[in-house]
């Protein structure tokens, strides 16, 4: 295999190899906390790798749409989350009840719920902005 082909294979397949390794470690991680750490890190690395390879494969207008959407949509979603975050730290938020992602309720569960909530708002903003970009540029 030439270096050119090997490089192309690594660029395309590397993320999936990391993903498979992550799944293997996740299976081991059911009994081993250390393995679950490795699985989580490998899983996110594979997501970054696959995302990077996919981003490199699309044309410049599509790349621009995603960059614009992540900046404005993601930032807009984060701003909405920021309002909720600020209110949660004031007397207004004391009466709020928040569903917990992980049962039983624990500080880590509440942190995960907050992180997931912010992520959902950012992704929602991103998707709306992405649709808007294409509506304006089609």
């Amino acid at each position: 295999m030439s270096w050119q082909r090997a490089r192309s294979f690594i660029a395309r397949g590397g993320g999936f190899i990391l993903l498979i390794l992550a799944l293997v470690f996740a299976r081991i991680g059911a009994q081993n906390d250390g393995a679950m750490w490795v699985a989580a890190v490998l899983g996110m690395l594979s997501a970054m790798w696959i995302g990077g390879a996919w981003m490199a494969s699309i044309d410049e207008a599509a790349q621009e749409a995603h960059k614009w959407s992540w900046y404005w949509g993601g930032s807009g979603g984060m701003a909405v989350g920021g309002v909720l975050l600020i209110l949660a730290m004031t007397p207004t938020g004391r009466g709020w009840t928040v569903p917990v992602l992980l049962e039983p309720a624990s500080p880590a569960g509440y942190a995960a719920t907050g992180a997931m909530g912010m992520l959902l708002l950012m992704v929602t903003g991103y998707l709306l902005a992405w649709g808007l970009w294409w509506l304006r540029h089609r």
Binding site: I58, D59, E60, A61, W134, R138
Partner: peptide
């Protein structure tokens, strides 16, 4: 050009300005 048809359409309608390489 190695781009999508949607990109060509956006270029033709003047709604997207290409990069210098494109």
């Amino acid at each position: 050009l190695g781009v999508s048809r949607q990109t060509v359409n956006a270029l033709e309608t003047g709604r997207y300005d290409p990069s210098l390489p494109l």
